[in-house]
Design a protein around this nucleic acid. Structure first.
Lengths: 211, 211
DNA sequence: TAGATTGTTAATCGATTAACAATC
DNA sequence: TAGATTGTTAATCGATTAACAATC
């Protein structure tokens, strides 16, 4: 139905609008918002049109009503519970962010790690052994998880999550997970991002400098 | 020239090939690699064709020579120095990963934070005040940086980086940075990733259950 | 040979951009 | 009104997919 980039742009517009609101602005033009979000004004209007948000021909869009519409679309009034697997460096960083939620109204209710020495509360979040997975998922009615384990164990963890009813996974391990088609997986690989940037810089240098 | 997704797929193939090699495999078919990387066999062949890698009509591709070609394309023999700005939770997690490089042959040589109490070595990496930015960038010949500051200070940091010659930025702060067109910026926003996943799950539920 | 695989060309698909009418 | 802005339709662009010839 709606594509991934479109959804991410809407979430980005929401962040920009929150900043504008904080600065005291009441309305915004498509080119202003586009500039802030790094997309074209046409793209902004097209996106808003697609989710049935309308502005005023001369006066642009009302920030407050934009936010109401976007919040209704994305931000559930009730807190959404998610879980986190792997309490290495990245897992602990994410757990720490959780102090004021990992996303708007999104809360990590429990973390998991195979290392018994990590199964305590010193990260501000209860860390369980993986054999508690089923109980926690059912108890908190969780359907979304973050995988922050090493690559070697990520697929195994993913399998267990799927078996226990998880339907959405944010994967920070540097590999592509295999899962049934009805499970949504989003992959983030920071090393690959850095390596891609470095590649672009080098590539461009080759082109320009003719080494 | 070559598009972003294409480059990221090549980097992903490389990761998959490294795993295959570790498992003792010598050759691989386009559908095998595609399956592992989560793309179609045609896509794999097209990508390899585009970067002038060729296989054998019946015997697939030789893993070792694929890796040599990909390493030559992406992995510089000399270590690439990068810097990290912001030593909050995420910054510290990234600094910790640096123990065995943040990417292949990519090394964080220095970190920066405005908080004087963080300007010491306890993270396994030297943390400087931002007024040392210019000296460090010149001293280590750095052209790539990771921004892991809060959103509020990210644009200011970005400006300083650009002034000092940084040409590639991995931005982990939840906003879009403005920079000259010749600066490459890659944005990663974990909250938005999670919120997008939750949106997809809800959206699909609405469609199926007719609440 | 027959079957399987590569590699390239053409077709499709979808997203972005451009154009412009409507209108405040 | 004139100028600026929205919103929609058409055109473009590029990436992915399908098709298939070549060949091992």
């Amino acid at each position: 139905m709606s594509h991934k980039n479109y959804i991410k742009r809407l979430l980005l517009y929401r962040l920009c609008l929150l900043r504008f609101k904080e600065l005291g602005f009441k309305k915004v033009f498509s080119h202003t918002l586009g500039n802030e979000a790094g997309v074209s004004a046409e793209q902004v209007r097209k996106d808003f049109s697609q989710c049935e948000i309308s502005g005023n021909k001369k006066a642009g869009y009302n920030i407050e009503s934009l936010l109401i519409t976007l919040n209704e679309k994305f931000i559930r009034s009730e807190v959404r519970n998610i879980i986190l697997i792997g309490m290495g460096n990245m897992g602990r960083a994410i757990a720490n962010y959780n102090n004021h939620y990992i996303g708007t109204n999104v809360f990590i209710v429990a973390a998991f790690d195979i290392d018994p020495s990590k199964q305590n509360q010193k990260y501000g979040i209860q860390v369980f052994s993986l054999d508690k997975l089923s109980a926690v998922i059912q108890g908190f009615k969780v359907n979304t998880a973050i995988i922050a384990t090493p690559a070697i164990s990520a697929q195994n963890v993913c399998n267990q999550l799927v078996e226990n009813g998880i339907k959405g996974i944010l994967n920070l391990a540097p590999l592509i997970l295999k899962a049934p088609k009805d499970v949504i997986i989003s992959n983030v690989n920071l090393s690959a991002e850095i390596e891609a940037i470095i590649y672009y810089l080098n590539g461009r240098k080759d082109e320009l400098d003719v080494e």
